[in-house]
């Protein structure tokens, strides 16, 4: 069997082993994570809107053209996003293709890169991260970390699961290095950062 022959071939040689290192070092630190996050997100083609508290998000959403114009809307954030698509009742994720706006919760956000971690392990349809035309992500200020090192201190995969770092909208520079926002996934990403720094 190939499994056995591959493992046997590997066991025939013993490359030198420098040992498993600890991931430690003097990592970048930001005094004002929120500002840094917003700048990094903008650099990635996304947008950050600060709100003092969750309920304010509703008003901010109304201020977004992408939201107002979305005829079909989905949401995984309790009480927000004014959804008219019931994700739990959807049998085919392909039906999410014409969702104009989806609001999702982020469990942490990374200041160095503008990335938001969306844990979709419990989602029936993880396609809600990728198919809708526009995305809104909700993150709390206390869940903002400096770098990926702190992020992975908090991410766990005990069993079956799926998670994704989303850093701004879908994009490509495959044509003459010209950056175009909105390749095959979301054409815009708006992060609502909740709370005071």
């Amino acid at each position: 069997m190939s499994r056995e022959s591959i493992l046997a071939a590997l066991r025939q040689s013993e490359p030198p082993d420098p040992g498993l290192p600890e991931i430690e070092g003097r990592w970048q630190h930001f005094d004002d994570r929120a500002t840094r996050f917003a700048a990094a997100l903008e650099g990635a083609g996304g947008r950050c809107i600060r709100v003092p508290a969750r309920p304010r998000i509703a008003a901010e959403l109304q201020g977004l053209e992408a939201f107002r114009q979305a005829r079909r809307r989905a949401s995984v954030v309790d009480g927000l996003g004014d959804p008219n698509v019931s994700l739990g009742d959807l049998d085919d994720p392909r039906r999410l293709a014409d969702v104009g706006f989806a609001l999702l919760p982020g469990s942490l956000a990374v200041a160095e890169s503008g990335a938001v971690w969306v844990d979709a392990s419990d989602y029936l349809h993880r396609a809600v991260l990728f198919l809708p035309e526009h995305l809104g992500l909700v993150v709390r200020v206390p869940d903002l970390v400096d770098t990926l090192h702190q992020a992975y201190e908090r991410i766990r995969f005990e069993g079956v699961g799926f998670g994704c770092f989303l850093a701004g909208p879908s994009k490509t520079a495959d044509i003459e290095q010209a950056l175009v926002i909105g390749a095959h996934g979301a054409r815009s990403v708006t992060v609502f950062l909740v709370g005071r720094s």
């Binding site: 991931i23 990094a40 650099g43 990635a44 990374v110 160095e112 890169s113 503008g114 990335a115 392990s121 990728f130 770098t147 990926l148 090192h149 992020a151 992975y152 201190e153 991410i155 766990r156 995969f157 069993g159 079956v160 699961g161 799926f162 998670g163 994704c164 770092f165 989303l166 850093a167 701004g168 909208p169 879908s170 994009k171 520079a173 996934g185």
Partner: peptide, 28 residues
């Protein structure tokens, strides 16, 4: 899993100058 912090911080910066790609999906 934590080793990803090292590789992901290096990968996109080396490839295109971005701190991270738009999508970094973890399938379990």
């Amino acid at each position: 899993l934590a080793d990803l912090s090292v590789f992901l911080r290096l990968l996109a910066r080396s490839a295109t100058g971005q701190p991270i790609t738009a999508y970094t999906s973890h399938f379990h």
